[in-house]
Amino acid sequence: MASFQTIDPDKMYKSIYEFPDHMTAAIKIGESISLNKQYPDIKNVVVAGMGGSAIGGDVVRILVKNEIEIPMVVSRNYTLPHWVNNHTLVICSSYSGNTEETLAAFEDARNKGAQIVGISTGGILTERMHDLELEVVAIPSGLQPRAALAISFVPMMYLLKAIGIIGDKTVNQLMNAAALIKENRNQYSEESNGNPTYALAQRIYKTIPVIYGETESTAIVAVRWKGQLSENAKMLAYYNELPEMNHNEIVGWENNQELIHQLSVIWLKDQNDHPRTNIRQETTQKIIGDLSEHQEVVVIEGNATVERYLHMIHFGDWVSYWCAILHETDPTPVKKIDQLKKILSKKS
């Protein structure tokens, strides 16, 4: 097999390796946020975004869930929920600033009278918001959107703090999380069996991974793993969450066994999982048994939830990278997305 440097000419390796550095840089951006407007009487928050920008909203939502006291949702659509109104803070997050769904959601937010802020590197979104004298948090360009996760979610968290929706509790844990990830990234970046991310990639790269996590917890990390396996490794991957999958999907592990055997199951577990979820996971793992190619359990140790979740995301990013390398596939290009955008641009 060719060296990973040859397979990865655009250096996705570097982008993943520098995730904790991106966090540190994003913390500085967050600390420098100074708002000129007031955002009074906010009763709910909607993050409008797609892809890497949307997962940034998901990450914020799950990290601040024990601190935020109003509902926060992520909208991946052209339109926003019907209940959005002048008491809603809509954060339009688009790394490029040109995401068509987010631009449409921005107009919908205006029509619904929402209070709007943006996070972007520029593009049409920034131009429109500046024209309307709306505030935009500027973030640095130059990355693939999926590799800019830290650049998206950290300023969003600080934005919520600046508006008064959250306090210091969660943001104060970000620097420690970055330091922890730095301690592990050298091991994860080695093309060797001693690297647990490379070893896991070797076991799953010829399968279709199905990733299970707990609702409102590791299920968000599972969404990230699925997206990274699809975009970086160019592999189909799927996710679902416990306990919901125990009420339907579990029954599907029966017929088409020759196909099921091509699946691998990855269980994402955290020490804060509900005790009943732990029992469900262990029992479901036994029920599935050897129907799948194999089953993997990923657990990240650590004292703080923020550290564990972000570490697990980084772990999964490396798994997706090594799957790409094992397939001898350049992880950076997303040709089918580019093809789709080209076709859509002619149909607008």
Rank of each mutant, 00 (worst) to 15 (best):
N195H: 05
A201P: 02
G194Y: 12
S152Y: 06
N176C: 10
N184P: 02
A177R: 00
A150F: 03
E133C: 10
E133M: 09
K169A: 15
T197C: 11
E133D: 15
R146N: 15
N172T: 14
L149C: 06
N195T: 06
I165Q: 07
L143I: 02
P155M: 10
A148K: 06
P196L: 13
V137Q: 06
S141T: 13
P196T: 12
I139R: 10
P155D: 13
M175I: 04
F153R: 01
L174Y: 08
S189P: 07
S141R: 12
H130F: 13
N184H: 07
I166V: 13
A177F: 00
A199K: 12
T170Q: 04
A138H: 15
M175F: 11
M156G: 11
V136D: 09
I151W: 10
I165L: 15
N184G: 09
G194N: 13
Y158C: 08
F153V: 01
A177V: 04
L149Q: 07
L159H: 09
A138L: 14
L159Y: 07
A148V: 03
A178S: 08
A179N: 15
N184L: 03
T197E: 02
E191A: 14
A150V: 02
L159A: 03
A138S: 15
G194H: 12
A201H: 05
Y158N: 09
S152A: 10
L160H: 02
N186L: 12
G167S: 13
P140L: 06
G164M: 01
R146M: 04
R185N: 08
N172L: 07
F153D: 05
R185I: 10
H130R: 15
D168M: 03
Y198H: 05
H130A: 14
G142L: 01
L200K: 01
V136S: 07
K169W: 12
L160I: 10
N186E: 14
E191V: 03
S192A: 13
G142T: 11
I181T: 02
I151A: 04
G167L: 12
P140S: 11
L174Q: 07
S152N: 12
L174I: 15
V154Q: 02
M156P: 13
A178K: 01
R146C: 09
Q144K: 10
V136H: 06
G142C: 04
P145S: 03
S189H: 06
P140Q: 05
I181D: 00
A179R: 02
E191P: 00
L160N: 05
E183I: 01
T170Y: 09
I181E: 00
Q187T: 14
L180G: 01
K169H: 15
Q144G: 12
L159E: 02
R185Q: 13
A199G: 07
N172S: 15
G167W: 12
A177Q: 01
D168Y: 03
A148D: 03
P145A: 04
P155R: 04
D168K: 00
N186D: 15
D168V: 10
A138Q: 15
L180A: 10
I151L: 13
L143S: 09
P196Y: 08
R185A: 04
P196H: 10
Q144V: 07
L180W: 02
P196C: 10
A148F: 02
N172I: 08
